[in-house]
Amino acid sequence: MLSVLAAGALLVSSCRKDPLKDMTAEESRIYVTNYDEEADFSSYKTFSIVDSVAVISNRQGAAKELTAYDQALLTNLKSSMQSRGYTLVDKSAKPDLAMNVTRIDNTTTQVGYDPGYWAGWPGYWDTGYWGYPGWNYWFPSYYTVFQYNEKSVAVDLVDLKNAASHGNQLTAIWNAQLRGTGVWNGNNLDSMLKAVFDQSQYLKTSN
């Protein structure tokens, strides 16, 4: 009886067409953007971006890194934001928006997680970096995310302009996640970030 069941199980699994088998790295990747539907993106004029990339992992200690990939990532993000009309300023010049950039190397196979969970991990950008020591980050609950267990990149755009009215919380108003095979490969940066900004047409300021 058991051998019949085993043979049956084998038949079932071998009959199935495996979606991952013929998938290219490009096809495996997904680009997710979340935005605050209440936010008026044109009301922000200036932005600043972190000077390196936070690397978060559940296997090894957290670090801030600035590899060639990280430099290319930051450069691309700066020019993409500038092309939407935002002015890049130093973080000391009271920017309206702060951009946090994180690489996540997570090997758990959890099937779901709270959005913005990476903001609570050691190694993520401390709110003190943006001049708000002791504050927390706040990711609105309508941010939805997919299950995953691989390397990814998260870009979080945080509202500093209205920080005072949000009670010790820096609210994320936009977030982009790059997931799948090859997201940490510099050759893929341009196409990935183009997709992210193309699908975020609302992300622009008025001059």
Partner: peptide, 29 residues
């Protein structure tokens, strides 16, 4: 047993406060 399958080229799928760019593979066993 039956296995239904269709691959859909990359597109942007809008949701509530969310957009996802992905190639989708639809399967049902």
């Amino acid at each position: 047993f039956s296995d239904f399958y269709e691959r859909v080229p990359r597109a942007v799928y809008p949701g509530k406060g969310e957009d996802v760019s992905a190639m989708q593979t639809h399967t049902l066993q």
